[in-house]
Design a protein around this nucleic acid. Sequence first.
DNA 1: AATGAATGAGAATTCATTCAT
DNA 2: TATGAATGAATTCTCATTCAT
Lengths: 182, 182, 182, 182
Amino acid sequence: MRDGTKTRLKLERCALELFVEKGISATTIKDIAHKAAVAEGTLYRHYPSKEELAHHLYTEYYKVVSSQMKQVAAQQGNIDNKLRNMTKFFCKNYDEDPILFNYLLLAQHHQLKIIHDKDVNVHELLVGVFKETLHSDPQFCASITMGIVLQAAISRIYGRIPRSMTADADRLTDAILGALKL
Amino acid sequence: MRDGTKTRLKLERCALELFVEKGISATTIKDIAHKAAVAEGTLYRHYPSKEELAHHLYTEYYKVVSSQMKQVAAQQGNIDNKLRNMTKFFCKNYDEDPILFNYLLLAQHHQLKIIHDKDVNVHELLVGVFKETLHSDPQFCASITMGIVLQAAISRIYGRIPRSMTADADRLTDAILGALKL
Amino acid sequence: MRDGTKTRLKLERCALELFVEKGISATTIKDIAHKAAVAEGTLYRHYPSKEELAHHLYTEYYKVVSSQMKQVAAQQGNIDNKLRNMTKFFCKNYDEDPILFNYLLLAQHHQLKIIHDKDVNVHELLVGVFKETLHSDPQFCASITMGIVLQAAISRIYGRIPRSMTADADRLTDAILGALKL
Amino acid sequence: MRDGTKTRLKLERCALELFVEKGISATTIKDIAHKAAVAEGTLYRHYPSKEELAHHLYTEYYKVVSSQMKQVAAQQGNIDNKLRNMTKFFCKNYDEDPILFNYLLLAQHHQLKIIHDKDVNVHELLVGVFKETLHSDPQFCASITMGIVLQAAISRIYGRIPRSMTADADRLTDAILGALKL
DNA sequence: AATGAATGAGAATTCATTCAT
DNA sequence: TATGAATGAATTCTCATTCAT
């Protein structure tokens, strides 16, 4: 490609991996450029700064995933089914790109000045689902749900659970429903 | 001042707060020294580097908390009681020093090269508890348990749940037991 | 500038002069950068540290000079002629770049951890020459020879002898031969 | 001792050894204090600064040695005998304390601002001796003499000659006389 | 669009020196 | 006299960013 799209994608992927591995502020432009096998200056053809790149990476993908998640949450069905589908969707996405999911869900984003509007925030999405069904304390329920699923992902990072997330999707949903007495 | 203990404690506390607020690599020596109201060079009388300070802070406190947690886990009782007591202990500790707990639980530890031996790792402690009771898939159960409790803490950080952790301790235990069908 | 060769050469020359003038550890990066009229950070594009620069400077030039000296020593001729040619070669080189020679010969090399293999060590070269001719105690002879020539160079540094080294080359050789009863 | 003389001597000896080993500017107060097993501040009870200590160490001993050397040079006798006695004296002093001799004779003193008046400079002493005897080019002769003897000392530092200096005193004198055609 | 040398601000670190005990 | 914690200026080093090619 003459237009630099290939370089841009390489840069983004390498940056993503390094951000997850070392954290955003500990990752240097040099690190990224070196891993992407381009010159340091090249990054600035595509992004005005490292922060911008990190921010772009976040919003770009978070938007896509959370809007799809929103669709899943909006589908017809009782809360059991909604949670089951959302969990399945989450697991599938994790398995497709664990590194991206780590970045989106586990990176310390309060260090970036990323504030997502409630519209695209998975926790808030869950709060919405629980509110709909008149469930008591939706914040508590959403926290339980997120905790079970996120920690399952973290357990993969630490190599404690060798299975794919998808393989555990139903068990995870059952655990959520059990925890919430649903 | 005769010995440097007071200065050291001040440095450690200020560093802790900054590490939680901004992340380790985004916190500068200047930040820490300024907050502790000492000269920058003073830090180096107590620690050879920022990294060492962060590491010390982590292992020092993690050791204390996890060894106490170990004692709680070792107490007589069925698994219900053990989980209830461990949850209570965790909640109490969180409430006593939320900042410290954020540091211990949410710091991106793979960025510090901290490897705790299994002996002092809370997840592994839980794995041990579940193994003891011949429960199936202890790793999965430990993950569920950790997820529920940790996410409760994270929800406090984001201001989503205004109550103390202790106020939710029993509900959290109930959720864990429900999730694990116990 | 396309490549950094010019900058690198400037840095090396300025560093060399300062190292000889003030000693390595008393020379600062600022000194070097200022003298070379570049930014301090520029030095680090070429060398990982001041120490590495000093080391590079030493080995780089020592290798060249000593390998040429080796060729001179390897030429046909009796020991008289060899010593005469080596002395001449040494003097010529000194006169061409006294500062470089001061660095190579007078730097406190045990402070840099420079260990040259015997192959590129001028003293050992002399030892080899004296061994070849079955001369007794080659170490002693090499020491005498080195002492006479090196001190001649040092006398120039202190301004005690105004002549060029080359102007004294024959007298120095005669002194060496006299000292060794050759 | 209550008066600190013992501490002072320990400090001086340790400083001397470190100055020879690492060079003056690369030796830190901490190094010296640590080696002498005293606190860093203690050094300042005895010397106003590291430079002063280095300077003191130099002049203190140089004065003694060079004035004794002067006496040796002033003794009756022809030039042969004078050179023989001076060499012997030099060798004896070297053997008694090689480290001190390295400091006095081989340290890069132009890095300290030590300027010895001609009165206490060994090279100049030799120049005087050669002038006395109407020898041509006393600077050249002094250089030859110094070179032969100093290099013998250096060869000991590098471990090239295992004998004591005194054991070689006569051979060194013979070499000097041979070099100077005396 | 890509390069990588150069920059310079700032972060980490060192170290001679001071000072309260 | 001795200590060693604290200082702060100097030094080393890092790194995001610029710019000539």
